[in-house]
Simulated scan of single mutants.
Amino acid sequence: MQVLIVEDELLLAKQLKKLLSASEPAADVVAITNSVLETVSWLQNNPAPDLVLMDIELADGQSFDIFQKVSIPSPIIFTTAYDEYALRAFKVNSIDYLLKPIKEEELKAALQKFRNAVKPQPGKEHLEALLTEMQKLQQSSEYRTRFLVKQGQKMISIDIKDIAYIFSQNKFSYLRTFNNQKYILDYALDELEQSLSPKLFFRVNRQYILNSGSVAAIHSWFNQKLKVEVEPATDEHIVISRDKANAFKAWMGE
């Protein structure tokens, strides 16, 4: 099994290579690249590897830029310190998304997914079987557990359970925590809605996605609509259409 490692920190690349050898003795690391430019060049001048282990934040950009410059038919296991790219990762050839520091058992599980994906299946072409397996993996991807947000000159991690609601304002998306802190997000509400667990969050209208724990009161409103009070409080009414009212009440446990 030929493997390409894309990692911009040499020490981490060596550690990953060592971990890979322990997890899959048959693995042969054919190259280690550390940037978008170097990876594109390598892929353009070499046969596609069987598997790619790919970091996301590279020396000259994000690894997603690679897919815009060259076709990568190989399955990808993403290895990164950030979880906010998981949804985007599964839109490409990803079969798994591992958060650093990577543990041996997690890598072994990811490699087993790879073996299952490429296993020959009677009556199907190899590529068709691989794509089918990838689609299943994409559909079963976990929901977001935290956000990385900017606070002045630094970045901090916000646990999903600490978010009271997410909302749009002046064409930007924001989250507000239960302790009433507001942070900007780099995603549209439609994309955020797909990445959040429906057990914890509900898209009540075009502007708001609420955590069930933020709902302080629910009032009947005009034309069978609902008005919701949340904590921390907002400066505007949060109104739920009558089309969504029953689903919302059921979600709240009616």
Results as ranks from 00 to 15, higher is better:
252 M>W: 13
121 Q>H: 04
42 W>Q: 05
121 Q>A: 03
41 S>F: 14
245 A>V: 06
9 E>W: 07
51 L>D: 01
140 S>L: 15
98 L>P: 07
122 P>F: 00
77 I>T: 12
124 K>W: 07
78 F>R: 00
49 P>N: 00
117 A>T: 08
2 Q>W: 10
90 F>G: 08
65 D>T: 04
247 A>M: 08
72 I>T: 11
240 I>M: 03
176 R>V: 14
112 Q>D: 09
71 S>M: 09
197 S>L: 05
118 V>F: 11
13 A>L: 04
150 K>G: 02
240 I>F: 10
138 Q>W: 04
91 K>N: 09
73 P>C: 05
9 E>F: 07
227 K>L: 12
76 I>S: 01
171 K>E: 15
83 D>R: 00
29 V>R: 04
140 S>T: 14
197 S>Y: 08
117 A>C: 09
251 W>N: 10
186 D>I: 14
152 G>H: 08
246 N>H: 08
159 D>L: 15
79 T>V: 11
230 V>F: 03
253 G>L: 08
202 F>C: 05
186 D>P: 09
175 L>K: 09
40 V>G: 07
132 T>L: 13
10 L>Y: 09
49 P>M: 04
253 G>W: 13
227 K>N: 07
66 I>Y: 05
81 A>V: 12
173 S>D: 06
248 F>K: 06
64 F>K: 01
34 N>P: 11
224 Q>H: 10
100 K>C: 01
20 L>G: 07
89 A>N: 00
39 T>Y: 07
199 K>N: 13
62 Q>K: 11
198 P>A: 01
33 T>M: 07
211 N>H: 15
147 F>P: 02
56 I>D: 00
254 E>N: 11
156 I>Q: 07
145 T>R: 11
